[in-house]
Simulated scan of single mutants.
Amino acid sequence: MSDRAREQVLKAYDVSRETTQALDAYVALLHRWQTVKNLVGPSTLSEVWSRHVADALQLLTLAPEASTWIDLGSGAGIPGLILAIAGKERGIRVTLVESNARKCAFLTEAARLTGAPATIRNGRIEAVIGDAVGTEIVCARALAALDQLLAWSAPLLNSGTIGLFPKGRDVQAELTQASARWTFTYDLVPSRTDADARIVRVTALTETSPR
């Protein structure tokens, strides 16, 4: 099933031979490190292509002209490192923000192995986000509720950066919660990997009820 999913994903996103080799190297490294580092949910490792790689690749299609990205709470590099691998041929550069030093060690090794144009920042989001003003895209996957993502991303979103935040079936509840604090312009993009999921694309943000 994994091989079939791999082929389907590579075909769906028209992945080049060079990028395929880099993605294969990343997936192999993820499997090796998973046994000692628990980088992703164990139950999802067998679905790495259909669940993780495809989820990341679809974000690239939403911002084809963007060359600078920042991924918050990058963890095992999903989506940030995959974006860097797949976007290398387009000249994309991705900053990966991760507070866990062990996960940063994995990201550093994965970026070295694949040649991905990624900068790893080992620190808390609040401490490094200000350095990213001017970045074109901010993204985060499976990290926090939308309200918190907007709070972390506010220095970027209120200065022209676009936010891409994949969300599951509770997206409407998260939008309602976030609207109590923020006024933001957004649209919901259907996920290509999950019929119940949406990607919240935020294009403007102001805080209306400060905490």
Rank of each mutant, 00 (worst) to 15 (best):
R51M: 12
V128E: 05
T183N: 10
V138M: 06
P42M: 11
S99A: 08
T114V: 02
V53K: 13
Q21R: 15
L146H: 06
I162C: 02
L72D: 07
L113W: 04
G123H: 04
T108R: 05
C104R: 03
Y26I: 03
L157A: 04
R90K: 05
A195R: 14
L143F: 04
D24Y: 11
M1H: 14
L188Q: 13
T135L: 04
A110Q: 03
R121E: 08
T135F: 09
G73Q: 06
S67Y: 05
K103Y: 11
R181K: 12
A151S: 08
L188G: 12
L146F: 04
D131S: 09
L72H: 07
R181P: 06
A105E: 11
T95Y: 06
R121Y: 04
G168F: 06
I129F: 00
A204I: 11
A86T: 00
G41R: 11
P210K: 14
E207Q: 15
I82A: 03
R181L: 07
T114S: 01
D196Y: 12
I199F: 13
Q8M: 09
E47N: 14
R169E: 02
R4Q: 13
R51P: 07
A5Q: 14
L30S: 10
D194A: 15
E136P: 01
E207P: 08
R201F: 13
L45P: 06
L107W: 07
R181T: 10
T135M: 05
G163R: 01
T193H: 05
F165S: 00
D187T: 15
L149Q: 00
T185E: 15
A132S: 07
V48H: 03
M1A: 13
E98L: 01
L29S: 12
D14V: 12
V27F: 12
A22E: 09
G160A: 01
L23D: 08
Q34P: 07
T108C: 03
I129V: 09
H31M: 08
E18V: 15
R112P: 04
G91P: 01
Q34I: 11
V15S: 11
L164E: 01
E109I: 03
I70Y: 07
L10P: 09
A173G: 13
Q177I: 12
Y13I: 05
W182L: 06
A86H: 05
V133H: 06
Q21W: 09
L175V: 02
E18W: 03
P64E: 14
L150D: 00
L62R: 12
V97A: 08
S99T: 03
E89T: 07
T68Q: 13
L10G: 12
V138H: 00
E136N: 02
L59T: 04
G168M: 02
N38C: 11
D196M: 14
S153D: 03
L29W: 06
D55M: 13
T183V: 03
A66M: 10
T183S: 13
T20G: 15
A111H: 02
R211K: 14
E65M: 09
D170F: 02
V27R: 10
S99N: 05
L72N: 07
S46M: 09
I85Y: 01
R198Y: 13
H31S: 07
T206V: 15
A22I: 09
A63M: 10
E207R: 15
V128C: 03
P117Q: 01
A12Y: 01
L45G: 12
L164S: 00
